[in-house]
Design a protein around this nucleic acid. Structure first.
Lengths: 212, 212
DNA sequence: GTCTATACCAAGATAGAC
DNA sequence: GTCTATCTTGGTATAGAC
């Protein structure tokens, strides 16, 4: 694979000892960095060193914190699913004239700003053959499906369609279709059709990646 | 990552010299094997040795044939896109009482039987940050979108919805949701809702993987 | 809590024989 | 056209110091 241009600023060299920090705080920082890198390069395509650099700590420390790279990825998936469900629950509880289904869609699209979150999930979703990752991915996907039916009140068809559009959104982000927005009218039309309201968010993700 | 249980029979040991074969024939065999493995494990998660074993040839020979692993993956993507477009064109040309949109959907779902084809595409789609892979993925995705509009006659909305359901199907396969069909009623309902007609194909993909 | 140093293995690629 | 042997790199994980 050719080297991937990066979004995340890598000027954070891990060489200089990171300032001491409570381990749970540090843990969150590393999880966020890992989410960004995994989202961009996928599970196998990511090295623990890339995560460490993005988080501004040393590579062995990342491994030390999570045990193995796989456990780190699983933690990323769980955090992503928790964040997603929390956003949905918030959107559901919200007082608003906007219909619930739309509010859910907007809540989902808003997660695009959480760098790599939806894409890390997507990478997990397509690795169903891996025993651990697959188990987590299926459980998470079904949790969302059930929530849409039981709590939001969608029919199976509505929930399935909602998820389909979510997967489409994930794909458009993953494929970086927004990079073609200005130069390819078809890409532009597709983006404007597939995500009319939240286009701004996607376009904000254009340009060279910020991860090292 | 824990080791992935396999679908493809690995009894094909490369140790015994493969019988000589015209290079384009061998090329196709390797491409098919590569499609299956890449579909299951993704680009970075696949080794050229796994591909070689699945194809029944030696690892250096795989590299020799395609130059690099990345070129092999790109060849897999191109072959997958060609196969997909050919299936669509065939479904379009077909005489039938079934409406075109349905015929397209069925043609797509039928590709599930081509082991790893749709999943290799999906893995490519989520690697848009990689310069080469991303370029190919975006071009292929847009080619399909344009075909749906220009040749099939879909509106942008219809084409976008069609693609959304395609991505949903890919995801359900990738996540191996069919593995839960018998034991989880929610998984079953979701599968029956998302792919009512072609469920049989998906279920056929259940069970231990056949790739080594 | 965090680092440096390093062991160890896996994997892509090359050389060269048959 | 296809293999065996091997070089080389890069990446996870461990040991141990501060």
């Amino acid at each position: 694979m050719s080297s991937v241009p990066q979004i995340i600023d890598s000027s954070a060299t891990a060489a200089v000892p990171a300032t001491r920090m409570p381990s749970d705080e540090r843990r969150v920082l590393v999880l966020e960095a890992a989410t960004a890198v995994f989202g961009q390069r996928g599970y196998a395509g990511t090295t623990t060193d890339q995560v460490a650099t993005a988080a501004g700590v040393s590579q062995p420390y990342v491994v030390r914190m999570f045990g193995t790279k796989e456990k780190l990825f699983l933690a990323v998936l769980h955090r992503a699913l928790d964040t997603l469900m929390a956003a949905f629950r918030r959107a559901l509880a919200e007082e608003s004239d906007v219909p619930v289904h739309s509010r859910m869609g907007m809540a989902y699209a808003d997660l695009l700003t959480d760098r790599g979150l939806l894409l890390s999930l997507m990478h997990g979703f397509v690795l169903g053959s891996d025993p651990e990752i697959g188990k987590t991915a299926r459980a998470g996907f079904l949790e969302v499906y059930l929530f849409l039916k039981a709590d939001v009140g969608m029919t199976p068809e509505e929930a399935s369609d909602f998820l389909a559009h979510g997967m489409m959104l994930n794909t458009l982000v993953g494929i970086r279709m927004a990079d073609e927005y200005d130069t390819n009218p078809d890409a532009r039309e597709l983006l404007e059709t597939a995500m009319p309201t939240k286009l701004g968010l996607l376009r904000g993700l254009t340009g060279p990646d910020k991860i090292q």
